[in-house]
Design a protein around this nucleic acid. Structure first.
Lengths: 219, 219
DNA sequence: CGGCGACCATACATGCTGTCTGGTCGCATC
DNA sequence: GATGCGACCAGACAGCATGTATGGTCGCCG
């Protein structure tokens, strides 16, 4: 047998410049999957659908990716990298909290709007695939870390959170965002309205972190 | 053909009392699924697994249920009915908010602890099945409605939420709960610790609803 | 020009779903 | 005590998806 297609590596490092980009088929597969995700849910998309949309053979698909999940993982990484820098105002710790927070939340909304299909897909799938699970949990941890840092940098907030697990508070706010953005992308009211989404998230974050403890409770 | 197994109805209404309970096989299937869910994730469980565990034939399975999802839906309904009354202190509107809230949150934790498999399963699957989707969204709406009612009954809270969509605030807190309980059941730290989970949730709810607006922000 | 690397079509083994066929058993009625 | 029907079972099937394997084409590079 001659056509052994190398043990594991992709289309081989040493290639100079005749084929269009480095690995065109791989990109075509990623693009096709991304496009399909814009209209259909991940688990209803088969490998057959992807290769048909990309105009690539089945063999090539499995040459570049071990499976559907790996394609999704790559798409998520790219989307999230792009979003990482959008959240920079909040993560960097500069600016006043309120302003930075609003920027971050707005950035999240935009990120989810632009990548609804891909992000919806991973949120629905990370529970059932080890690779995706690790990817998404790590992502959430990254955001959580940033928030923990901001909290710890502010003695006033630390005081108000007295006795609470700081990491848990930060994580809960991170996951609240994940959930609300997801619900918006999944057309669950009332979060389909961007302004409502942003205001609600903003309220929860500011009151949880910067709000005074409940004093009077009527009723 | 003689064994036509009636068009759609289950094992027939008119039955008096000779077979053990009304529909024993159906219960066996539900129990078996519930048991399997305690150790394995829903989408890794096949109909073959369920009928093997229940000691029921394939034909009978499809006689009682249109598919796996229907079994899960039934299990969720039962679990949730049981939890509904546990949340009664909060939903009824009696008691002072703080105490009622804590009862409700504790009740949720207990419900999730006792039904981790089933609830984890629906949270991971409601996105991909119309029946499950409707069931879970309705459930979340029920909780949201109760919270909306409590908010609207308290003019002081209404005042502090001025300009915000009340329903969105209530829904966000409901979904925050869903998420944190799920993460706990999925062994994602730090929510695996019940006390941390309850305290964090309590903090988020009380500050979002009953906390004063952020005044000073250091940093 | 010879070989190798990128690619393709096709076929296969496996596993799951949902449906269908035909048959067994027990009970209740005539 | 035969008969008939309802509850149940075993097994087979078509359809579809996955992941792997076979063998062959094409073009470039040395």
């Amino acid at each position: 047998m001659v056509c052994v297609m190398a043990p594991a590596r992709g289309p081989d490092a040493r290639r100079s410049g005749s084929n269009p980009p480095p690995t065109e088929l791989r990109e075509r597969l990623l693009d096709a999957t991304r496009d399909l995700l814009a209209h259909r849910r991940f688990d209803s998309i088969s490998v057959a659908d992807i290769i048909a949309a990309a105009g690539v053979s089945r063999a090539s698909f499995y040459f570049y990716f071990p499976g559907k999940q790996a394609v999704l993982a790559e798409l998520v990484r790219r989307a999230v990298d792009q979003g990482q820098q959008a959240a920079e105002p909040w993560t960097s710790g500069q600016q006043d909290p309120s302003r930075a927070l609003r920027s971050g939340i707005e950035a999240g909304a935009t990120l989810w709007k632009d990548n609804a299909g891909v992000l919806t897909a991973i949120v629905e799938s990370w529970g059932s695939d080890e690779q995706l699970r690790e990817l998404w949990l790590r992502q959430m941890e990254t955001f959580t870390d940033a928030t923990v840092a901001r909290i710890q940098a502010d003695p006033e907030v630390m005081r108000r959170l007295d006795g609470l697990d700081v990491r848990a508070v930060a994580a809960s706010l991170t996951w609240l965002g994940e959930r609300l953005y997801y619900l918006a992308a999944a057309n669950v009211p009332p979060f389909t309205d961007r302004d409502i989404l942003v205001d609600t998230l903003m309220h929860a974050w500011t009151h949880t972190l910067y709000g005074e403890s409940p004093g009077s409770t009527t009723a």
